[in-house]
Amino acid sequence: MTEDMTVRNQLMFGKLMIGATALLLMAAQASAETIEDKVAVCAGCHGADGKPVDKTIPTIWGQQAGYLYIQLRDFKRGDRKSEIMQPIATQFERDDMLAIAEYFSQKPWPDLGQPRAPKDVAAKAVAASASVGCPACHLDRFQGDGTVPRLAGMGRDYLAKTIADFRSRARGNNPGMSDLMLATSPDDLAALVDYLAGL
């Protein structure tokens, strides 16, 4: 072993030790993390005031706790795909997910200031909704309950993207929704998007 190698090994050992200590510290921190620490990362995309920073990102403030929990669970399982959400959800155990879901469900639903759909569009949307029975799960005025999400006042672009993803089955964690969206015409779905965003 040359002196060079020894120095390099010592350096490597030192780095490893620092790394290991950091990991230990992080683990200790993780266990002492408050719910605020756990959700800090969320604001980056979902908004510090509950208004998502990008229009294709969903509102999670005021969303149903059961629904938020199931989405975190599915991101972790890989049943719902997202390069961003999957690594985040993977860090959490079931209890964390339930706590995070409860935390956001207690926040007020933000007003995204989206316009009401014009009368003809609303009428078309209501007919389409009645045809496949949306309120049977999303309930009166699309407020959702339990594991079924609130859709009223959700971001327009997110709604449009989600419906498209259900139709292509790119969003694969609710095939029943894919079936219902595939049975509904793109025209009717466009009306539904405007209607729901404006509720």
Binding site: Y69, L98, S105, C137, G146
Partner: peptide, 8 residues
């Protein structure tokens, strides 16, 4: 928090 039901 977990309820899964059809039809109301």
């Amino acid at each position: 928090p977990i309820t899964v039901y059809c039809c109301g």
